[in-house]
Simulated scan of single mutants.
Amino acid sequence: MGDSTTLHVEFAGEHYVVSPDTVFAIGRTGDLIVDDNPYLHRRFLVLRQVGDLWWLENVGARIAATVSDFSGTVQAVLAPGGRLPLGFDAMHVVFGAGSTIYDLRIRSDRPALRADELDADDSDLHDGETTIGVVSLSPPQRLLLVALSENILRLIDGGRGGIPSSAEASARLGWTLAAFTRRLDYLCQKLERAGASGLRGEKGQLATDRRMRLVEHAVATRLVTRDDLILLQRVPVRSDLQPE
């Protein structure tokens, strides 16, 4: 990568150039202030060059971030205290705080890695859970994901968007709340079997947290994209689709 490599961070239409040997902080305060959301850490993520590689570090205490290449082929969950190398030419960083989800993009002048060079079992390259591959979605599952991800998918240059409640999303689709919850449970189980984490409904876990993690995963891995928003225009008043 070399000393001449710079990073370009894009968020909500703003562009930041991060020079080599610069420590760039992201959070409620820092070089990139993403929001005044009280659920967001003051210093959450840090970009730092170590040797010939840029690294993304999670310096927060509670929130995880989902990081992926732009194709969605490689996706990693960056937990508090973890770090990841930023070797691809362009990467998505998606994270949630409270009921708001954030999407920022990081681009490199001279990428050092290809997607097929990141080994999910290579602990020297990352400190987090990495998922490689895509999951096939049924039509009801795709609709559910688009309804939950709609606000963030409508952002052109990244930024912030709210996550609807289950009642709001089910009404958006013309489903009953019971049918929506049943399909949500099944989809989360399916994605967890495929390697996604944080989707299991456990005691003490808020429903908002699970929906947030689901949207993070779906957007970062491109399970749903802006092109899928057209599906919401075709939703009937009520749906007789059966859960898959």
Rank of each mutant, 00 (worst) to 15 (best):
32 L>I: 10
215 V>L: 05
14 E>Q: 14
24 F>D: 12
193 R>E: 12
182 R>V: 08
20 P>M: 06
176 T>P: 06
47 L>M: 12
52 D>G: 01
204 G>F: 01
16 Y>M: 08
140 P>V: 02
183 R>F: 01
84 L>Y: 13
114 R>K: 15
167 A>E: 10
57 E>H: 14
121 D>G: 06
83 R>Y: 08
93 V>K: 11
141 Q>F: 00
220 A>N: 06
112 A>H: 14
162 G>P: 00
168 E>L: 04
222 R>A: 07
34 V>I: 15
111 P>Y: 14
163 I>R: 05
60 G>W: 10
40 L>K: 09
58 N>A: 09
122 D>K: 04
155 L>F: 05
133 G>M: 06
192 E>I: 05
183 R>K: 08
97 A>Q: 11
235 V>M: 09
56 L>S: 06
148 L>C: 06
210 R>M: 10
19 S>I: 04
10 E>R: 15
123 S>W: 13
103 D>Q: 14
156 I>D: 04
136 S>M: 02
1 M>T: 10
72 G>F: 04
143 L>D: 01
226 R>N: 03
194 A>T: 04
163 I>E: 03
92 H>I: 00
225 T>C: 01
196 A>G: 00
10 E>Y: 12
236 P>T: 05
183 R>V: 08
87 G>H: 14
119 D>Q: 04
158 G>A: 06
229 L>T: 05
168 E>Y: 02
229 L>Q: 05
186 Y>P: 00
151 N>K: 03
137 L>V: 00
106 I>K: 14
167 A>R: 12
233 Q>S: 08
36 D>E: 15
225 T>P: 00
74 V>T: 14
89 D>T: 05
112 A>D: 00
150 E>A: 07
57 E>V: 10
11 F>M: 10
206 L>Q: 13
204 G>R: 03
145 L>C: 01
121 D>W: 14
224 V>D: 02
210 R>P: 02
214 L>A: 03
218 A>L: 08
77 V>C: 09
126 H>F: 04
63 I>P: 01
175 W>K: 09
220 A>D: 02
127 D>A: 08
121 D>R: 14
202 E>N: 04
221 T>I: 04
63 I>G: 03
118 L>Q: 09
28 R>E: 11
105 R>K: 13
208 T>Q: 10
145 L>R: 03
226 R>Y: 07
209 D>V: 11
78 L>M: 12
121 D>F: 14
106 I>L: 15
31 D>N: 15
189 Q>D: 13
63 I>S: 12
18 V>M: 10
244 E>H: 11
224 V>I: 07
152 I>N: 01
12 A>F: 07
75 Q>R: 15
87 G>Y: 13
106 I>H: 14
174 G>K: 09
46 V>T: 15
213 R>Q: 14
222 R>P: 03
222 R>C: 06
149 S>D: 01
102 Y>Q: 05
164 P>Q: 09
231 L>F: 03
161 G>P: 02
159 G>C: 07
17 V>R: 15
213 R>C: 03
132 I>C: 07
71 S>I: 02
133 G>Q: 07
17 V>M: 15
196 A>P: 00
145 L>P: 01
199 L>P: 03
7 L>I: 06
113 L>D: 08
240 D>Y: 12
47 L>R: 10
196 A>F: 13
